[in-house]
């Protein structure tokens, strides 16, 4: 039994508000740690909120619960988002969020399997999560388990060849228990994905690799839940969600600006970001 089922079901407005609360904490952690990937954490936060608050069968009191769904968070540099959601559910004490990027701290700049409860696979080097998720999906299917496997990867990450090896395998083996979510915020480190190494037309590419694809606005909670709650989209294919997002979404001066891939804000910037996020939370 999932612990989540005992919680009141949150409406989409409340879920969006929760995503903004996460944004504020992500900001504070990045300020305290003087680093971290704010932009990509903001782009993926609605998706993570929807997954953990509404979609995944999981039990924070028993992170290794055998009946759980698994999320392989492949864009590991955006772990600020993941850490906050895991701490919210009590996978580890919230105080440990304070140790992010600190000497001798608990939370590194990329998530580590075996050290942090709720982290299903080590990530940080890009292009690793999808193949691992494929392996998990093969194992679940082989054993006849109902477990669903989700993975979130970035659009920049999808420059990696191993991502496409993983997409080929998922399609080849018809892994309908597998859902890949591509957080398409449009940017990689040094510029836009389109100008550096385009992966478009992404939906068409994924379809040609044997995946059933839906394209959504990754900041619209109704669209997110509509997609997540209807996987598998096809009973004999893996599902792909092309989630169109804005890097830095939620703070006006961070949106679609490359440097927020890894920069921490100045005091003045932090004050403005806080004001904007608090306004969103209180709206």
């Amino acid at each position: 039994m999932s612990a989540l089922l005992e919680k009141p079901v949150e409406g989409t407005v409340e879920l969006s508000r929760q995503a903004d609360r996460y944004r504020l904490r992500i900001l504070e952690m990045a300020i305290k740690g003087n680093g971290g990937h704010i932009g990509g954490s903001f782009s993926v936060i609605e998706m993570l909120t929807a997954l953990y608050h509404r979609v995944l069968n999981h039990d924070p009191q028993n992170p290794n619960w055998e009946g759980r769904d698994k999320l392989v968070f492949s864009k590991g540099h955006c772990c600020l988002a993941l850490y906050n959601v895991l701490a919210e559910f009590g996978y580890f004490p919230k105080e440990k969020l304070e140790t992010y990027y600190q000497d001798g701290g608990y939370l590194a700049g990329h998530p580590t399997f075996g050290k942090i409860p709720g982290v299903e696979a080590t990530a940080g080097s890009l292009g690793h999560g999808l193949p691992i998720a494929v392996g998990m999906a093969i194992a679940a299917r082989h054993r006849g388990e109902n477990r669903r496997i989700f993975t979130i990867l970035g659009d920049g990450e999808s420059n990696e060849g191993s991502v496409w090896e993983g997409f080929a395998a998922g399609g080849q083996f018809g892994l309908s228990n597998l859902t890949a979510i591509i957080d398409c915020n449009g940017y990689e480190s040094l510029g836009t994905v389109d100008e550096i190494m385009s992966i478009e037309p992404l939906a068409g590419r994924l379809q040609s690799f044997g995946w059933e694809v839906r394209e959504i606005n990754g900041h619209n909670m109704d669209e997110i839940l509509g997609a997540l709650e209807s996987v598998p989209f096809n009973s004999s294919k893996p599902s792909a969600i092309v989630s169109r997002t804005n890097k830095g979404n939620g703070v006006s001066f961070m949106e679609n600006v490359s440097m927020w891939h890894y920069r921490a804000p100045s005091e003045e910037e932090a004050a403005q970001a806080r004001r904007e996020l608090e306004a969103r939370i209180n709206r």
Partner: peptide, 28 residues
């Protein structure tokens, strides 16, 4: 049946898949 897989000429994916299987208590 189902316990041999040819993953094609894609070694990086094969190792990632192996890790995913091992994380699922298989012995690849």
């Amino acid at each position: 049946p189902g316990r041999y897989m040819n993953l094609g000429v894609a070694e990086a994916n094969m190792i990632g898949v192996s890790a995913g299987l091992a994380l699922s208590d298989m012995r690849p």
